[in-house]
Write a protein that binds this DNA or RNA. Structure first.
Lengths: 216, 216
DNA sequence: TAGATTGTTAATCGATTAACAATC
DNA sequence: TAGATTGTTAATCGATTAACAATC
């Protein structure tokens, strides 16, 4: 009943919410005052029922015939995801992928701000990449603690992934976004999110093999 | 009954298969002759029943008490995913992310070989990145056709994504791995796989917000 | 033989899809 | 009012989990 309790959503719903948010922000920029789930569904090629249920879970209330007031629905999604305020993050491992992520402009619109990056290579320590300072990895745990950084982006070589994850945990980091193929072992209270490109490729390959069909 | 027909698997199963494959290859390197689903499950932190079912779908046959002969189970997964032979791929858009993907060594072990990259920037056309030639995007469709390239990796700016996807399709490319936030419109017979970092971040953010818990 | 593991069948759970009443 | 859209309840579908017989 109360607006206090945060509803929980399934993973499929959570994965769709950013798509809605991106579209809604664009529509707002174009001056739209209302957005209906029906239009969102059409635009993204989704089933309207799915969109309706997803939006309902954020607690937003729409008006029959009109849809959702633009500002309300955008705020509802942002609040639900915790994206009303960005969280500071540290990135560790400034290789190809690390650089690419540092260069990606979009994260701040998705609740995350990478404030510093770390590496062990003395050649790049002290330099800047896309405006962010590269510091000695040894300084990371203490700095994480001092700055109360909660989020760690792990883009190191697989062989040192566990060691660096341990350092992140030592620094009080509560969630690790793991871009390495290493299966990390972490305490119960640390959140892991693995980014597995091979998994996506597997879905694609299998489709290419059995269908010639289409989806998503 | 027959070994001919390719079974189909759900997306969750497809996403786990590469994890098994990576572990099994490592175990093989270490000289193991058999691999049991039980051990795989333990090592990856998964439920043994899930692993058993996943492996069953590849058509591999195990022996009670021993597990699966290493070479057989590895081949079964590779065959199932179509990874016994790598597919040639074109990458279009040599920005930060494109460069990172070109630098990633692992794709060839996952069924994909990026043989060339394309861009519109004259400053980088004619150069090489991680051993692959960067060519003029204008030449891409004809070259795709001539080389019978089936797979396109899309790492361009969002604003030109649809245009470049159209060029890929013109070149006969059958599957597009889309790293842009653009919702592409493609013919029925073209396979789309979207890589959505914002979605992963949403799952992570939401967990950080409601739990302090752990998963995956 | 004893026991760990496979392979299969049944039960549970959650997400998607369908149906429809309520509303502006 | 008429009709598009919301919000909710029910039905279907598929994945996960549980149980257990078969086997080396």
């Amino acid at each position: 009943m109360s607006r206090m309790e945060q509803r929980t959503a399934g993973v499929p719903t959570l994965k769709r919410l950013p798509l809605y948010l991106r579209l809604l922000r664009k529509m707002k920029e174009q001056g739209e005052e209302y957005a209906s789930g029906a239009v969102v569904a059409r635009e993204l090629g989704l089933d309207p029922i799915v969109v309706r249920k997803d939006l309902a879970i954020t607690g937003a209330v729409g008006r029959p015939r009109l849809g959702f007031p633009m500002d309300e629905i955008i705020s509802a999604i942002e609040d639900f995801l915790g994206w009303s305020n960005t969280s500071d993050a540290f990135l560790v491992g400034v290789g190809n992928l690390g650089r690419a992520l540092l260069g990606y402009q979009g994260f701040e619109q998705h609740g995350m701000k990478i404030v510093a990056a770390f590496d062990s290579n003395p050649d790049i320590i002290g330099t800047k990449v896309h405006g962010r300072p590269i510091m000695d990895i040894k300084k990371m745990p203490a700095l994480a603690k001092r700055m109360h950084v909660q989020l760690g982006v792990l883009t190191v070589t697989a062989s040192v992934a566990q060691k660096v994850a341990d350092m992140m945990i030592e620094g009080g980091i509560r969630a690790i976004w793991n871009f390495t193929p290493t299966t990390l072992v972490v305490p119960e209270n640390v959140i892991l999110q693995r980014e597995e490109l091979a998994s996506s490729l597997a879905v694609l390959s299998h489709r290419l093999l059995v269908e010639g069909g289409r989806k998503s």
